[in-house]
Every structure is written in C-alpha cells, then in structure tokens.
Write a protein that binds this DNA or RNA. Structure first.
Lengths: 242, 242
DNA sequence: ATTGTTGTAATGTATGTACATATAAACAGG
DNA sequence: CCTGTTTATATGTACATACATTACAACAAT
C-alpha cells in the first residue's frame, strides 16, 4: 500500500499524483512495458479518488508519456514523443522529466568577439564584446552534449549571474528578458577535433548539431546558441499539425 | 441560449464541446480578447455539466489556445497564432521551393511484415502484411536521402497507385485519408553498411535520421516513415513560440 | 491618499456515483 | 482446429455536489 500522498500539503493532490507517476514512469519496470495498476486500484493505494488520479494520468497522456488502452491498461509510451514542441524547458528540466540525472562537466563564462554570423544576427558591430557561455554536460559516465551560447548586450548580463538555475527563468527574473520565439536548425555533422575532444569521441563520429536563434516578444535577438550532441544520446522531437 | 450539442450523437459531449470552443476561438470577438462566458453559464447554455465542459476547456488550455485566470475568466491566448512550421510540403515541393532539382534514383513498392515497433504503432498483428515504399532521391550528381515508409492497411493502398505525385495529396484524393498530425524524432546516427551503400558514403559517416509518425484527424496511425539524410545535405528547421 | 477589510465572482480541487464501451481471454459449438 | 460468443476487466463518459483559492472591486478606516 503506497501512501506517498500528503492530504494536508498545500500541493494539490493531483499534482502530487502526477509527481509520483513521473517517478514510476522513470522506473525500469515501467520503462520496459509493465502495466500500471488500474485506476481504481491505484487510486485506492494513493488514497485519492479515481477522478483526481485521472486528472494526473490524463496530463501525462497528453504529454505523450503514457498510453492507455481499454481492457489492457496504462503503460509508458513506447516512442516517447514528448508532445508540444515545447523546446522551452531547460535542458536539465527536460532530462529530469525523463528521469535522467545529469552532470555538469564544465561551465565557462567569458567575453568574446562575435563572428560575422553572430554580429549579423545581433545587429551589432563585431568589435563589440558579447557574453559567451560554454557548457559541457552529460551523464555521470561521460558528457554527451556541448553547448555554446552568446547573449545580446541588451540583455545586460554581467557574467556574475547564477548560470546553474534554468536559463530562461533567470533571464526573466534577473533581467526582465522574456524569450518567446526560437528558430532552430538541426543537422548531422562529423565531429571535428575540438568537438571530438569535448565529447570524448573519435574525430569524424556523427554529431547532432543544433543552431538556435532566440528572440524576445518584440522579435529582438536575445541568444545565439549552438548545441553538439553525441549521436544516439539525444533525440529531437517535433509535433506538427496541418 | 446555445444548444448546438447533440446528446444523442455517438460523439462524446466533451468532444462536441471542444469543437464548439474551437469555433468560438476563431471568432473575431474572442480573438480580440473577449472573455468567454464563465464555466457555469456556458455549461448551462450547452446543456452539459460543468465537469464535461471543463474537460474540453482543459484540453485547449493544454494546447495553449486558451488562458484562464481566476476571477477574470477564460479567453483566447495572446501569442499563439498558428505556431509550428510546415512539414507538410512534400519532399519535392520543398526542394523545388529551394531551387533544387530532384532526381529519383530508386522507387520500390512491396509488401512486408512489420517489425514490432511498426506493428505496435499501427496496432496490428505483426503477421499482417503492410505496404512498404522505399525511395532513394537526390541531386543529379548523387543521392542524398533514403526513405522508407510503411502504410497502415486501413488506408487501402494496393501498390498500384501513382507514387510519383505528392503523397499526401494522393492519399487524400484516392483514398480519402487526410493526414493532419505528425510526430517526428530526429537524431544523428552513423551509417551502417546498408545505408552507406544506398547513399554512397563510407560506413560510419554521419547521417541525419528522421523517424516520422503520421496520423489522421482522429489520431489514428496512417504512416510510419524513416528518412536517412546524408550529412550536410539537409537542415531541419523548427520554429516555436512560448 | 493610503492602507486594510470584506464581498464576490471566477477558476481550482476533490469526491462519489453510474453507466458505456472496447477488448483480451475464456469458453462453447461446429 | 477454428470460429463465434460470452464474460470479465479496464478505460471512457457524464453528472451532481461541495468546498478552496485567487484576485479584483468596493468600501471603510486610518
């Protein structure tokens, strides 16, 4: 009998249930296709009503994390198609959601001169220094992604900010900059020596390369971001309606 | 008093409510920020219960079409305007747009047994044969993409169709199947022997791999598609709003 | 004028209940 | 052995109800 739900907590019961379900989802058994206890049973275990539990389950179904079939039951979705091209979760938030612990291998903040493409995107002179952020992140056993970001001077970053917290929240709270639009280009490339060194892979290995342009609500450029992902470590999901 | 909801229809009431709400959303008044009737009032107008109406509203809130605030009410979300990019151009249409002439190197139609993932996606037994379409396409100087598609038996393809015309138009006109939703997963992989052979590149070279799940308006699976793009030949672009 | 209080209107949370529907599995009949 | 039929079980749909929370608005007190 589970009873991990606190009826006296200010956190809504369905939200608590959602958290519990996310935990279950990340467990190996459920990842491997084990059927969840049925609604009635699970509701009883958690000591909440079926309707409340359903609220939590439905949210996860909508996100594409769970699938349900009558008579069969509820289980973790096979092809984890995380719905809504919500690319607005931070990297760590997203990984957390998928139950992956991440480790920071390097974080580097510096001032740099933008190359032509960046200066062009920011609409500034290439003599003007911009803040550059590099991050090397991955699983405990090794890095699998190398990021480089450049920020528009308008944002007002000093380099002393706390770059460990979710980036877009930090920008919003500390600098009142609200990122609302991103354009991304995704391609496959071969690792050059630099990237191969960072990701600890052979030169020439496949790398998923993402170039990202981030704008504020006035469509003014905010961030220029490059991401290099070790092959197979990362799947980019997109959902589109006609 | 609205009463556009048919209680005798086999279509669930919440689904009917959802359709009505979508219509309202598209109306000018609501686009311009008019507040919707409150839940209780609207439920009364539609002659359904508040819970049922809420089911519909919540779905649209999840989708980001509506925003709600206590005491203020429910209205159309500001920023939304149709997000997402058009992945709905056919390959050749898209290439044409970019001024690239396309050559077909191979087109192969056959019947095949689906592997577990495909059978699972289609929700059919893996003994049931499905139509398989392979295409190798590229520039005059060489191929740069290899596609494999599987079609759900429901579509009713015989294999004798004209696969040279734009696929989704053909499906719509010849088989009344309207593809409206696609979920895609993009990753980088190393070319295995088969793919390397097709694309005429060394084994182990980087390849942009796209897995695509296509659904009709009822979210029923229609097509399962794999695309292998030679590195640097293809850039995937995504635009997303928050 | 500012600050605090109270009313009220909207969504948010939560439960209990009832019946519908889809389907896997067991069963029976040929 | 296969084929149809029944049964049990899980999700799906729908409603009625109650109380909590939030936040704007009006008013009162300082």
């Amino acid at each position: 009998m589970r009873h991990a739900i606190d009826h006296k907590s200010p956190v809504p019961l369905h939200a608590q249930a959602e958290i519990l379900l996310r935990q279950m989802i990340s467990e190996d058994e459920y990842q491997n296709g084990k059927i969840f206890p049925n609604e009635i049973e699970l509701a009883k275990q958690l000591a909440i009503s079926r309707s409340t539990l359903r609220q939590a389950i439905n949210k996860l179904v909508f996100e594409g994390l769970l699938v349900r079939r009558k008579r069969t039951g509820t289980k973790v979705a096979k092809s984890v198609v995380s719905s809504r091209s919500n690319n607005w979760l931070s990297f760590s938030q997203e990984m957390k959601l998928r139950g992956i612990a991440i480790k920071n291998f390097e974080t580097n903040i510096s001032w740099a001169l933008p190359d032509e493409e960046i200066a062009d995107f920011f609409e500034i002179k290439s003599e003007r220094q911009v803040l550059k952020m590099e991050k090397l992140r991955g699983k405990p056993e090794g890095p699998f992604v190398y990021f480089v970001s450049y920020f528009h001077p308008r944002v007002g970053l000093t380099g002393d900010e706390d770059f460990t917290q979710p980036l877009y929240e930090m920008l919003e709270h500390e600098h009142s900059v609200i990122a609302t639009l991103s354009k991304e280009e995704i391609s496959a490339i071969a690792a050059d020596e630099f990237i191969a060194g960072k990701l600890q892979i052979p030169v020439g290995s496949p790398v998923l390369f993402r170039k990202r342009f981030v704008f504020d609500h006035g469509e003014r450029p905010i961030e220029y971001n490059l991401g290099f992902y070790k092959a197979d470590s990362f799947v980019y999901t997109v959902e589109s309606l006609r």
